[in-house]
Amino acid sequence: MKGWALALVVVVAATLAIGVQGLPTHDAPEAPIHDHVGARYVERGVEETGMRNLVGAVLLNYRGFDTMVEVVVIFTALAAVLALPRAGSVADAPEALPVSPVVLFVVRLLAPFIALFAIALLFRGHVSPGGGFQAGALFGALFVALGLVLGRRGAARLVPERARPWLQAAAPLTFAAVAALGWALTGSFLGFPQAPELHAVREAMALALEVAIAVGGGVILGSLFQTMEA
């Protein structure tokens, strides 16, 4: 058994080592990634989309449909989990354990930094790498960490009951609204107006999408954790 495991490890490691030999070097211009649409994005992305950050240009503009369906997928995952039968509601479940003072202290220490970093990522996402999905992952981690400290009921209070469904569906709803606005302005679904005088509108549309992705993603991650814990 051990001999087989060792043989498997050697074969896999050798395969990976051979594969690494074939990789292009880090800055090679002939790397396959530059052969296809990448060059076009880099050369004309700013001019064609009017966005300052190429990552944002690809995410929201060149591949806007992909991103839109992506947030629908995340929302559907939560809907599927919520649809599973459960023993009781989140609020009725007994608190499992008293909160560890160590965990309480560390979460209190780190929570403001996590929140600040998430907000910084969200708003820097316009001009540098970062953006809604990354910020949403951090918001979700913050919800989960606070849930560990506040207990289930306390965590449920973080997001008000009445607003919760709207926040969970924030990203798909905002995508629908922005896509409709783009349709009205440009004649194509999820189109971004190109005219220089509509620069502010374009930025506002992108910002709305990023904020909705971050808030919706964060709330969905937190809800998933709470639902599966109950």
Binding site: L97, S100, V102, V103, V106, L109, L110, L148
Partner: peptide, 14 residues
Amino acid sequence: LVTAPTAAHALARS
């Protein structure tokens, strides 16, 4: 240095 020991503590404690 803050988070890794805390995570180990929380795991072992629960």
